[in-house]
Simulated scan of single mutants.
Amino acid sequence: MSLIGAVLVLPYMVVFFTFWLATSLQRPMMYATIFCLAINPMAAQRKLTLFVNTARYLLFSKDKKWKEPEVPKYTTVHKVETKTIIFVRHGQSTWNETFNRGEKTKLNFYMFFIPNAIKAFFMEWYFMVTGQDKESWFYDSPLNDMGKSQAESVRKFMRTNLQFSTPKEARLIRIMLGESPDGKGPPTREPSSQLVSSNLRRAISTLVIGARERLDRGYENDKVIILSQMQEVSFNPDALCITPAKGKCELAFTDPKFLKPYFDNNLDTSLHTGNKPITSNGIIRLQSFAETIFKDIKKENIVAAGHSLWFRSFFRTFLPKDYDHVSKVKKIRNGGCVGLEFQKKTTDNGVVYEIVPGSIVVLHIGF
């Protein structure tokens, strides 16, 4: 058989042997599953709840559907408050590894889709039969190997030599590091910025990996505040949260073990309200995030780890409608960092939230 013929027939051989193997193992795996679930019924029940929730969101969630809110018309602005925000998109996840092409070529993605899907479902089965009810490949999917490398790229970027940065970039990088934004003040006991993150595991891990050298500096009260408002805009299972409201964030099975001290000491879940309600949608959480950062977060500078669709929705919602920008149509890439100025205007006709046009700065990787 020629080399070309062997390549063309390979996908069909993979499918054939996959089904043959699955058929051969069907009965022993079924017996093993029943036995394991019977000896650990509570874990089985919790795992079943995850599966049921996944089905509910896939069938009934309207998380990506909402009517764009009207911007109140006003004539007088009584007060303007401004926050500097740096968005950090999480690294690639196990869900992405299975179902998204990402950086792979089309040939690579389609050739290995079935083996990757088998691996993913086997891992989910393994977590179920071993009683690891808080672990999942699909649900609240954690970073994969590429995602951890992308998170490391954030850490390396934060060590940029500021001599080669523009003044705007240098200010934002200092904010990420927790230093004085103008670079003139003496070292402070508290950081100049507040770290916040989505409640999904891949975002938390990305921020902790990226900012761990900052966290090692020992600033007082330098914690990552976990915000349910930043949960991804999607009904897929990877966008559903495992960590219970105000509960302890646990390392995922893919997380480096060196993260444990940071998870134990530097995460604050006091504002975490748990998984998004099925009645929620993206605009509800975007508006709640805007209210929260001005009401509950005292610092003027915020470093926020989150997700591509949430970020894109943020730009579409809070940039002026007649202002064209790439952020409205393209996603921030995995590991990308983007800074902006965000304002709360108290007017004669209510409160208006707005990204300052022209304030968006691409720092790392970008869109």
Rank of each mutant, 00 (worst) to 15 (best):
N275H: 10
K83R: 05
N108L: 11
D182F: 01
T254V: 12
I242A: 02
A305M: 01
S61H: 04
R333G: 09
T346P: 05
W137M: 15
I175V: 08
I332H: 04
K331A: 12
G350Y: 02
V233Y: 04
I284Y: 15
M1N: 06
D133P: 06
P186R: 07
E124M: 05
Q287C: 09
M1A: 12
G218I: 03
N53Y: 01
I225E: 00
P237T: 08
T188S: 15
A252M: 02
L286Q: 03
A22I: 03
T269G: 03
N40D: 07
L10D: 13
P11T: 10
K83F: 09
E232K: 01
M42R: 13
L271S: 13
M111Q: 10
R214Q: 12
L227C: 02
P142S: 08
Q150T: 00
K62C: 09
T160M: 11
T317F: 00
P191A: 15
T49I: 13
N108P: 04
E250P: 02
I34C: 11
S24F: 10
A6T: 15
W310T: 04
S205L: 01
G183M: 01
H272R: 09
I225A: 04
L59C: 12
I302S: 03
N266T: 03
L25D: 12
H78I: 13
P115N: 13
Y126D: 15
F121V: 11
I283S: 08
T317S: 08
M42W: 12
I173W: 10
F235I: 14
K246T: 05
R171I: 06
M29K: 11
N161R: 02
Y219V: 06
F315C: 00
Q343W: 03
V77A: 06
G336S: 01
R101N: 07
L37V: 13
F258C: 09
L319R: 02
C241Q: 14
F122V: 07
R171D: 08
K73N: 15
S136W: 09
L259M: 03
A239K: 00
I173Q: 02
F315W: 08
M123C: 12
A252T: 00
Y12G: 15
F164P: 05
L172Y: 07
N96E: 03
R333C: 06
T33E: 15
Q92Y: 04
T254D: 05
R217W: 09
T166I: 12
Q92E: 15
H272G: 06
E135R: 14
I297K: 07
H364N: 12
N266L: 05
L21G: 12
D348S: 13
E97I: 02
I226V: 15
E124Y: 01
